[in-house]
Design a binder for these strands. Structure first.
Lengths: 364, 364
DNA sequence: AACCAAGTTGCACACGTTTGCAACGCGTGG
DNA sequence: CCACGCGTTGCAAACGTGTGCAACTTGGTT
């Protein structure tokens, strides 16, 4: 028989591998499976493709051969040709706050459930984030989720051009071609104000994280507006750029020691709120909530611990992530700068006085 | 000019894409860059390969063209041919415990620093883990890190055969062809016992998480042995399968209410320890550390909060991760079932009495 | 001028998969 | 007996890259 079939895909006749250490990395390909099953590579491929045209008989043969060889389709090769990696990039900006790690977990689980994989990157500064986005694009991710960070405008535009969707969590920036999932921060600010006013508190301090964040600003404005509208209370101070337990604790000690006399502290995260709480109770001997109230944000697990029983606002974690993913995978034609806003919910615990059963106070 | 060059790689004459929504996903390839720069595709490739043979002149031309087009090499295609994805799979078994999320963060940062990417999967049960491992192998990961879980033996063997290294964190199992990074648990158990004995505590309870875990067992045995050797103290009870704050709090309340009178509680995690602490102080009105001591494990941020000031054992997080990664990327010929054991360190805070300055008590 | 070494470049094959297209087998209705 | 349609199957061309090999250029030495 003359050498008729070119049979180009010879294996094994390769040069020694380059990488130095090589534990006999013998890859089993659809070719081997096809040979063993006595069919073509196409048949193997079709067997592993959900609704392709294969007879039950060949499917059986292929499955048997695949099982025997321990064959796993090479997703890398597949995605090279389908131009779809089923990979979603996830860039984490905030790690300290337990709320975001809970988010991370949910994301990875929910993406897994949708048969997507997550590629995780840590990025703090905007430069980091841009590098991360570039990296992810090199890996041909199908979409990118940014929790608590934003990329530069040009890079976002580039992603949009390439058809890679961006979803921002808890961040948004004017005109960025991305979907952002945010809270109705102004409403939350008003609700907190209303709760505190009804409980009889009048002298407020606010404690915020990164100053430039729109979420914090909006919340504070909602809060301020409600206070102002009531005509009953005033705001004594505003601590900014305070993140984490220690920052909250130190701030409140300095604040009180400098002679100010607030009767309620509103914080932008549970961590700082717990710091404030400990500062008040332990360092300063203040009675919370009788003398001073503390309100947090996020409802992390520690907020409900017996030692804290922190009044705080719960975020709709599940809803946020579902919204983010639904939008990411939707094939509706909604144009992209898109904003999904979800409500928060106040959890009144023991760091604020209970509201008198008489009901709402009269305004003004 | 007759059609001489086959010019097979025509682009653009493709059928409409399949995926439904397609935001004009126009991929820029080395081909385009080569054309613009007036060189061959090889030249482009070599420009982006660290020490390949390219003249400065062509490199310049290529770089310029690449920048102009916004070209990013396609890592997927690259790893198809290099058979190296620079992707490390990371399977998280424990999410509740902040210690592990801190670990996750470090991993992603340190892998990024080594120019590797991490693919994150959440796996709880062993079946989940096996599925995850299979998934990761489909994505051709170069290695897999398992934090706080183990795969089945056959799958681990398959990975070993394929040259995919496995590293287990805080877990190990006899004969699994993987590296495991663990603590010297027996020593930690002895150290805790010694601390408590010197501080004068005599009636102990231990509180553990998942019963079957070797780490917990070893720690407890080290502890027990030291107690027994001293001849001074006794162990009143052993709570098992208790994980998290609520479990610890509930357990200790029931235990004390059933009439037992321990004077020290040793926990297998900070979270349960804080639960125990709150149960004792808040629910039962016990004075810690005067009447009862509490010891945790892990030194999570909340352990150092003013309200807790928990005595605990700190884990060498950095050391563990460096060891894990060094081993993963080492090309020494060390044979694989390998065990790296690192020391823990007791952080004595305010939930145990200070040891009297007189120094060590006489043993026995 | 001839020669050689060193450096650079392009060709073409390979990586493992999907998929359009054409060919095939087969049963059925005319 | 042919035509037709339908369900399966294999061929071969992609996907975007790395890289051995041979060809070419260049510059220096004999």
């Amino acid at each position: 028989m003359p050498a008729k079939k070119p049979q180009s895909r010879r294996r094994g006749a390769r040069k020694a591998r380059v990488g130095g250490r090589e534990g006999g990395r013998e890859l089993i390909t659809s070719h081997e499976v096809a040979a063993l099953a006595g069919v073509s590579r196409s048949a193997v491929s079709r067997t592993f493709t959900p609704d392709a045209s294969v007879s039950d008989e060949t499917r059986q043969k292929v499955m048997r051969a695949a099982a025997q060889l321990g064959y796993q389709p090479n997703v890398i090769a597949r995605s090279l040709i389908t131009r779809r990696s089923r990979l979603i990039g996830l860039i984490m900006g905030e790690w300290e706050n337990p709320f975001y790690t809970a988010m991370l977990r949910q994301f990875s689980e929910k993406l897994q459930a949708r048969d997507y994989r997550v590629m995780l990157l840590a990025g703090n500064s905007e430069k980091d984030v841009d590098d991360s986005v570039r990296m992810l694009r090199q890996y041909q991710v199908d979409g990118i989720v940014l929790v608590s960070t934003t990329p530069s405008e040009e890079l976002a535009a580039e992603c949009a051009r390439a058809g890679v969707r961006l979803v921002l969590l808890n961040r948004d920036r004017q005109g960025l071609p991305a979907t952002s999932v945010v809270l109705d921060n102004a409403a939350i600010g008003r609700d907190v104000a209303s709760l505190l006013l009804q409980a009889g508190y009048r002298q407020f301090v606010t404690v915020r994280g990164r100053t430039h964040l729109r979420a914090g600003v909006e919340r504070q404005e909602g809060f301020r507006d409600a206070i102002r509208a009531s005509g009953l209370a005033e705001i004594l101070g505003d601590g900014t750029d305070l993140v984490g337990y220690a920052a909250g604790r130190e701030f409140i000690c300095n604040f009180i020691n400098s002679g100010k006399r607030p009767d309620a502290v509103v914080c932008s995260s549970d961590l700082t709120a717990i710091g404030v709480l400990d500062g008040l109770r332990i360092d300063l001997g203040v009675n919370v909530p009788a003398d001073i109230a503390v309100v947090g944000f996020g409802d992390i697990p520690a907020a409900s611990w017996a030692a804290n029983e922190l009044t705080t606002v719960a975020l709709p974690l599940d809803g946020m992530i579902d919204a983010a993913l639904d939008d990411m995978f939707a094939d509706d034609g909604v144009e992209r700068p898109r904003r999904i806003v979800l409500p928060g919910r106040i959890i009144a615990r023991a760091t604020t006085r209970r509201i008198s059963p008489a009901g709402k106070m009269a305004r003004g």
